[in-house]
């Protein structure tokens, strides 16, 4: 278990930037910014222009931490209180879940909630609940 500091300002500013990037994509290309959909379509594009915009936004996302490094003088912290096998299982479950659920935190949790989509509200409430339950089970019942 790793303790983390409560950081409301950087969290809110970071969140606002996430929103800004999301709005910029709607303004320019006219679609929602769902990380799952963008990634899935990148690996299985319908045309070369479909691939190109996905490659551009993914490249932009990957550059984010480097710009952070230039501004803050250090890479963003990645502290991982999770073993490698659990990370593999977790990633695999996320992949299956977001494909069946048609979205993740960005697609449902940000774009969908902002559009007041009922589907996304249901999806977001569901995954917030199961994430909380899972953390409770892993941390307090299993005691990892």
């Amino acid at each position: 278990m790793i303790e983390t500091a409560f950081t409301p300002y950087s969290a809110a500013i970071g969140g606002a930037l996430i929103g800004l990037g999301t709005v910029l994509l709607m303004w320019t290309r006219g679609n929602v910014l769902g990380a799952t959909g963008i990634l899935a379509g990148f690996m299985n594009p319908s045309s070369s222009s479909d691939w190109a915009w996905r490659a551009a936004i993914l490249a932009g996302m990957l550059t984010g931490p480097l710009v952070y490094l230039a501004i803050a003088g250090q890479m963003p912290a990645v502290q991982v209180p999770v073993t490698v096998p659990m990370m593999v299982i977790g990633g695999f479950l996320v992949g299956i879940g977001v494909t069946y659920g048609s979205g993740c935190t960005s697609g449902h949790g940000v774009c969908g909630l902002a559009r007041l989509s009922r589907r996304s509200i249901v999806a977001t409430l569901t995954f917030m609940l199961t994430t909380g339950l899972t953390v409770f089970v892993v941390r307090h019942l299993i005691g990892a």
């Binding site: 490249a59 996302m61 952070y68």
Partner: peptide, 15 residues
């Protein structure tokens, strides 16, 4: 579109 991804990625890094 690259800029949209970059702002998003910077936001993730900061947040």
């Amino acid at each position: 579109i690259y800029a949209a991804g970059l702002i998003f990625g910077l936001g993730i890094s900061m947040s």
